[in-house]
Write a protein that binds this DNA or RNA. Structure first.
Lengths: 334, 334
DNA sequence: GTGAAAGCGCTAACAC
DNA sequence: GTGTTAGCGCTTTCAC
């Protein structure tokens, strides 16, 4: 393995000079710089990141922790962080948190051990106190998809409420009158915000969403099917169905179809997230676009900025808005 | 930041002893070991990975490079590597290669700079020579989804030919007679092997697959739609359609449906890969399961083994077999 | 059993 | 402009 010493020796300069030309800083004579560059090239020298991280007390890695990278949504998230990292010439360290607070914490620790410059954390299960403490300890920590007022500036999140308001409004505008909602059994954060958005919009338009028309289930395709079956079994009548997310929406479409109902002719269905799976079903799913990749890139840049020693604290939070993707699962009755 | 020195000082021993208790090796008195452990706990000490990598000339990271982590298939791959890494107490470094040889190489280099112990590489665009050279330089390099005879032992791959043979056989056994194939415009490796498997199986059963019944397109949903439209436009008649992958298969189902053909009543469709998207369409897709996550875990363990200094070279290659997942897109006419 | 000490490859003062 | 040098936090040989 060729080291900075080898380069220095061959080029007949000191390692300090080599270091200077590598990082393009400090003063180096033009001829000297050119020669060293050439030697580096010839020798195929590449700096050892571990050594420079150790010596410089920084690292060129950024970490991301998500529950499970194999899920489409988190794949997009990771992809965004990777892009951001690449643009900033950083390496990406990844850890799965596996949907529970204990392993989530372990994942974060493992990234810290590697001296990550910044960490993007999608935390679902750790409570706010822990996260606030963590944020205090790690300057480059940014939360994605979660808002905690005390560390507002470290949060990159989506306005779920306005998202579902837009969806509801769209259904209303296209002439729907009887609404049903299928949502997650875990009525915390996102699910509850989305339901709130629906209720408030309906309220404003003089429509009361009956509790009977809300069904909770797992937030996946199966859950969607089950929820719709339950709704139907209760004798619930509706011409518009708002699903917590795309997975549930697709399950819902299947259940509706199995029950002899046509989408969107009999029932309009709208999802949330805009996963690529939304164009695999028929009708293609109308949904709210969750700009997760864009948010992840943003979060990455933010985290890098915050990790710098001269970062200026701010009270600004970083809120994104979902927008409507119109496809074929909603009928225009207006 | 608390270092090994702090721990040593507080426990009144040398750093050598602390290092010994951390790694559970070498001889340390019981009382001493217990005390040091306690102090480590109390101080919340965590070893600095960069320092130990540097000093020990190894690292605790494993790298994975795939074209694009946001695609479902590669998400599963990465997920497998992550699992393998976690089981071995390693961190995962990730890099996207973006579908071209130049950035693929850059990605690999960036992982090497970090002293990765092992690297799992899904390479589509680099040629064999480069990969063979790379394998020579990096003991812990394992290729996934690619077979290169010269470095057979470093390849974890799938038997695409047998996979499509199984699929074809299934269609034959269920009474289909008229076959059509939609495949990728890039007829290298996987796509051509899969087509080969189909042709040979058909041949053996006295059926000739007409060139006219093979259509090439992009290997995604749109490509699947286009290919089927082209087939239909040519006046091609078929009751069984083999798609290069699930994405194309789903596109095909849509195109068939749009043309007024029912799946599977009029045409049976079979995919390949077993992406989760296969249950989002109706009928649910019958397909070949590509055990990519399992393969990735296997590859990770292999790479770790190979990276060890006393690794024994072997001529064994690591071949996996796809198996049939029967759902609803194939009709039993037998 | 335990400690001293020599690096690992690099960065960043500081000196010239 | 360029070189010297003191570490960064750790592993590992070698003494005792």
């Amino acid at each position: 393995m060729t080291t900075i010493n080898d380069v220095a020796k061959v080029s007949g300069v000191s390692i300090a000079t080599v270091s200077r030309v590598i990082h393009n800083k400090g003063k180096v004579g033009d001829a000297c710089r050119a020669r060293v560059k050439k030697i580096i090239e010839e020798l195929g020298y590449r700096p050892n990141n571990n050594a420079s991280s150790l010596a410089g007390n920084t690292s060129n890695t950024i970490g991301v922790v998500t529950p499970s990278i194999s899920m489409s949504f988190f794949g997009s998230l990771a992809s965004g962080v990777e892009k951001g990292a690449r643009e900033n010439n950083l390496k990406l360290l990844m850890a799965n948190s596996l949907y529970e607070t204990e392993s989530e914490l372990r994942a974060i620790d493992s990234l810290r051990d590697n001296n990550c410059k910044a960490i993007i954390l999608h935390s679902e299960y750790s409570d706010e106190k822990i996260l606030i403490k963590l944020a205090g300890e790690i300057p480059g920590l940014v939360l994605i998809n979660r808002f905690i007022p005390e560390i507002a500036n470290r949060c990159v999140w989506l306005d779920n409420t306005s998202g579902s308001q837009i969806a509801t409004k769209y259904l209303l505008d296209s002439g729907h009158k009887n609404f049903a909602v299928i949502t997650s059994i875990y009525q915390n954060r996102d699910p509850s915000h989305r339901v709130d958005g629906i209720k408030s919009t309906l309220d404003k338009n003089g429509i009361k969403l009956l509790e009977n028309n809300i069904e909770e289930a797992s937030s996946n395709m199966d859950g969607g099917e089950q929820a719709v079956k339950a709704l139907l079994a209760k004798g619930c009548k509706f011409d518009a169905l708002l699903a917590y997310n795309d997975l549930m929406a697709i399950g819902a479409i299947h259940a509706l179809f199995d029950a002899g109902l046509r989408v969107p002719e009999d029932v309009s269905v709208i999802g949330f997230d805009d996963l690529s799976i939304g164009i695999a079903c028929r009708p293609r799913l109308t949904t709210m676009h969750y700009p997760i990749e864009e948010m992840a890139i943003y979060a990455t840049n933010l985290a890098i900025k915050l990790s710098e020693p001269d970062a200026i604290p701010s009270k600004q939070t970083h809120l994104f808005i979902a927008d409507l993707v119109i496809r074929d699962s909603v009928k225009d009755k207006s």
